[in-house]
Design a protein around this nucleic acid. Sequence first.
DNA 1: ATATAATATTGGTATTTATCCAAACTTTTT
DNA 2: AAAAAGTTTGGATAAATACCAATATTATAT
Lengths: 143, 143
Amino acid sequence: MECFTGLEISPKKVEYLKFLFKKDETVRTTDISSELNVDPSTTTKTLADLAAQGYVDHVPYRGVRLTEKGKEYARFLVHRHNILSLLLTHYGLSAKESCHEVSRFEAYVSRNAIEKICASMGHPTVSVCGKISHGSCSIGEHS
Amino acid sequence: MECFTGLEISPKKVEYLKFLFKKDETVRTTDISSELNVDPSTTTKTLADLAAQGYVDHVPYRGVRLTEKGKEYARFLVHRHNILSLLLTHYGLSAKESCHEVSRFEAYVSRNAIEKICASMGHPTVSVCGKISHGSCSIGEHS
DNA sequence: ATATAATATTGGTATTTATCCAAACTTTTT
DNA sequence: AAAAAGTTTGGATAAATACCAATATTATAT
């Protein structure tokens, strides 16, 4: 557990995992493709990478789902997105702007930074892109 | 003037321009290479790209310097770095951490966001990585 | 002023991330 | 079972980054 920096996967793969987390069930290649606006063959290939890294289980022609590791990681990814989006709204960006802005750079923000920002904000529970859970923070960890 | 989004150049090129801006004179390939820890041949090639995009003038075997466009752009790049670094220190990151963290994602933060953040902070004049000038903001523009 | 050293560029190659298309394959539907 | 829908494979491409070896240029030293 908790042995990740937040920088292990590429920007696009972050989107895949966040989507998978949101769906919380077995998802089909086409679902991902239409959500992310990429060719199904691109999805298949990306899924192969994510499976090789242990984030998803992919059964060809059947579907994908997050592994336990993938779930834990995706929980962090969503949390990071929410914290950063919330942060930007504190500086005059609209909810939509913040969310969009964050999507561009979130993959490069470390877990360490997010934990500090989150703590500094008092572990907020609501963001502009949805509720915030703290399962990936010090707080909320089943400790 | 001011017709850029802040997203026109890649992360590594941002570093080249910031360095060139800092030196503020003709710089040699080797200077850049040792600063950025890349092979001189890599520098030469990157410089060719930057020249093609109009940010630098490169005289082979002689050196590089920013064009006017490059200077204006680099001014923004430095400003962006400073604003973001300052921002992170407000959330419990040390100066060094902030600077390092920001270096990873700054290339993906838009000018629009920076202007809003800067305004929201009251156009601060000191950051953790140096003084902040506002030549790339609404404020400070010779208007 | 010329050999040598230092610096820079070119050409070739590689990796990572991301993407598409066409063809082949599997599953579902009719 | 045939057709349609969905998925995967194979082949290609592009951008960003980077290295090495070879070549070219400039500077230095004698």
